[in-house]
Amino acid sequence: MERTRNERAWLLVLPVMIVVAFSAIIPLMTVVNYSVQDILDPYTRFFVGTEWFRDILRDDSLHAALGRQLVFSFTVLLIQIPLGIAIALCMPTRGIWVAITLVALALPLLVPWNVVGTIWQLFARQDIGLLGVTINAMGIDYNYTGSRMGAWLTVVAMDVWHWTSLVVLLCYSGLRAIPDAYYQAARIDGASRWAVFRHVQLPRLTGVLTIAVLLRFMDSFMIYAEPFVLTGGGPGSSTTFLSQYLATMAIGQFDVGRAAAFSLIYFLIILALSWVFYTIITRSQKG
């Protein structure tokens, strides 16, 4: 839609600006202030310049947490995006089953994040959980509280359970938007099922898929409550991701300066990634 130029529109945006200033700008400025000081108590603080940043950037345990985070985020993307597309293609297109499958798909999205952890805790425990008991009965030694690999795989499975539906719902609505004429043209050409997918469906899904990747990447990058409840970040630190690392540092240990420096680095990563994705999305809509 062609929009008219009107600087008074700023007045309509003002309320949002005020609310978000209170909940984002002021806190962010505060984080910057904290990050350059060593704050012992409200009356004893020292200016330390960029020391906390130096410290954080060279911290091995943080590098490890960032590495785990990246591996986790890419793993869930690699599973969820193809699986989401596949399930969306399997969805019925008309009839009563559409509504039923849609509601069933939306269910995991509506579960509070800590309850997702609880559900999987109950489901995967080797003594009382259906999944844990079944896998152990098959002769595989599985115990997510004891083994690093078991814990990591359980967290990945939990995230797939929790969020693949979002990708499915996005792709499904993208598929529904393709006019029937495209399919008929493909049928006349005698295109195989794969050719239809490759040349008719996939190109028209790029828009929703970019958004799905953006949302899934960003949300998996800030995952906190689910592994916190399920594994508490353990065993060892095998499922401690960035947000939990930061929350422990900030609220658990009240290590204000280091936590603030870390927060800023974390925020800069998110800012750059959001900008890249946003630019891709807006340019592709224009082009």
Partner: peptide
């Protein structure tokens, strides 16, 4: 702000 991790804003 939609994308930012809440953990970043925890302390302030």
């Amino acid at each position: 702000n939609r994308m930012a991790p809440p953990a970043v804003f925890l302390l302030p």
